[in-house]
Amino acid sequence: MTIHFGRAFSELAPSLFDALKTVTLLAILAFALALMIGMLIAVGRISGNKILDRFLIVLLEIIRGTPLLVQLLYVYYVVPELISFVVSFFVPDFHMNFGAFEAGVIGLGINYGCYMSEIFRSSILAIDKGQNEAALALGYTKHQALRKIIFPQSIRISLPALGNYLVMLLKDTSLCAFITLGEIILTTQSYAAQTFLTIESYTIAALVYLVACIPLGYLVRVLERRVTKYV
């Protein structure tokens, strides 16, 4: 048995490069969605509205208690069916589908949003109560104090953890292979199956993830340094 890294690389690299572009875009969009969802859940949970808090806890438990892969499959296969089923009562012959990419953004976004909400929530709660009181005493409303005084400080606390989540998200895009997205794993799999270059193909795929993640870690450290300049 001989190893053909050169051949595998030259044949696989171009399609992996396209796949990496897809994955990067997917990760960015899903992360942006997760940031929004995470913030909203965090703010909802500390708002003091008990019913909203309960509802959000149930949502969190559902997301935490089921595998991400199942959620992706659910968003891709089940949700469009459900929507079609309900809407077809009002609009005959209605049928909808998500593309694999859209389903990936939604599934990853919701999943990571739920996990990240706990980071936002704990980093908001970590800010000294005196900060809020000083703002209120100056005439800020609760909302203004949260937005202008508490948030900017809590971001600093949550940044390292958010960086971790971004790296994890990038790697978890690989699960989208199961919902037919032409990402890195699916591309590698089909090449390996055609050429039997198993060792080479999967090693290259692993290296692509590694190479993509290292600059992210660097980026997070740079950002951290920028926001902690006043500590």
Binding site: Q131, A134, A137, I149, Q153, R156
Partner: peptide, 14 residues
């Protein structure tokens, strides 16, 4: 009503 606290409570990020 201006208020000055025991622990200053300056906004750390400003």
């Amino acid at each position: 009503v201006g208020m000055v606290f025991q622990k200053f409570n300056l906004f750390h990020h400003l």
